[in-house]
């Protein structure tokens, strides 16, 4: 049986003035119904592109070269514009990093939500307004009447993100893609929003894909997660398993680079070098030039994603070769 969401060997490239730049080089991952799934990586690793591809929202300069995205047994990439339109909002919703740019500043929260509800659910004005109000209440906003008639700039950052979530959930989608939903927010507000997402997940039987650069966020909210590097999944598995024994050198390096009280005064284990600009042009493992455990084979062929335990898989030759980097 296929998973709820299955991305198979997805390759996406961008055409630019300087030629073609590969953004995704074979992303393979699966998300199970009802889970909170994390997609982690640094700037430029392709996590946002993956999210946009799932909603058919790729910019014009992007080309899907190969691969498939099966969502509820249908290939999203094969859908027509009309089918995508009804998929978005109804079955999959997306929220973005900066809630103030995602909301239209010249319309009230209420009228923006009403429009979505009327278009997708065919409700009349009064029903749409009632539904919007109910949703705002569900995301924990006080004084719903006031918020419906408020403009985005009347709300604080945290309230705006809550309103965005309410709008995304209007049609009770099966999947919510949250692209860095808390990056623009303060840590205390971030904790509220993350707690809210967990709560809504059980309330609405929702599957959440959380795109973030913050491993800490993943650690305490996600059931499973995947680490992306240079457009490829390097490690995927259950949160508890991966954090207990991170297998891929990149995952380990990322964790080691976070300042903790234990590392006070010592040099942090920074990852030398930078992310490759065009990972498609690199032969072998894209992380090899920065990897502390690199050996000859890494430079020749790209390691495939292999299961190393029941709930963990990674793309590295290291443990296959019997080497121990622990």
């Amino acid at each position: 049986m296929k998973s709820f969401l299955q991305i198979q060997d997805l390759h996406i490239a961008f055409q630019s003035d300087r030629g073609t730049v590969a953004a995704l080089n074979g992303v393979t991952l699966d998300v199970r119904r009802g889970e909170m799934f994390g997609l982690v990586g640094e700037t430029g690793c392709g996590k946002t592109v993956t999210g946009l591809a799932m909603l058919g929202l790729l910019p014009k300069s992007a080309r899907v070269r190969s691969g498939s995205i099966f969502f509820e047994h249908t290939d999203v990439l094969a859908m027509s514009a009309g089918e995508l339109q009804s998929l978005r909002g109804r079955r999959i919703s997306m929220i973005f990093q900066d809630p103030s740019t995602a909301l239209n500043p010249v319309f009230t929260i209420g009228s923006q939500m009403e429009r979505v509800a009327r278009q997708h659910l065919g409700l009349n004005r009064r029903q749409a307004r009632a539904r919007a109000g109910a949703m705002l209440e569900a995301v924990g906003l006080p004084d719903v009447g006031w918020i419906l008639s408020a403009y985005p700039h009347h709300l604080s950052g945290g309230m705006k993100q809550r309103a965005m979530i309410a709008m995304a959930l209007l049609c009770e989608p099966a999947l919510l893609v949250a692209d860095e939903p808390t990056t623009a927010l303060d840590v205390t507000i971030q904790a509220q929003i993350l707690a809210l997402l967990s709560e809504l997940r059980s309330k609405f039987n929702l599957t959440v894909m959380l795109i973030t650069h913050n491993l800490g966020v993943v650690a305490h909210t996600c059931d499973r997660f995947a680490v992306l590097y240079a457009g490829r999944v390097v490690e995927i598995g259950a949160t508890s398993a991966v954090f207990t024994v991170p297998q891929h050198p990149y995952t380990r390096a990322l964790l080691a680079a976070i300042p903790t009280p234990a590392a006070h005064g010592k040099a942090l284990a920074a990852i030398p070098g930078t992310v490759p600009v065009n990972p498609g042009a690199v032969s072998g493992c894209a992380f090899a030039p920065r990897c502390a455990f690199v050996f000859d084979r890494c430079k020749q062929e790209a390691p495939p994603l292999r299961a190393v335990a029941a709930n963990q898989a990674n793309a590295c030759f290291l443990d296959e070769a019997g080497g121990d980097a622990g």
């Binding site: 904790a191 993350l194 650690a219 954090f243 964790l255």
Partner: peptide
């Protein structure tokens, strides 16, 4: 509120 950090050894 720092949804923080796990050391190499685990949580």
């Amino acid at each position: 509120a720092i949804p923080s950090q796990m050391s190499r050894r685990g949580v």
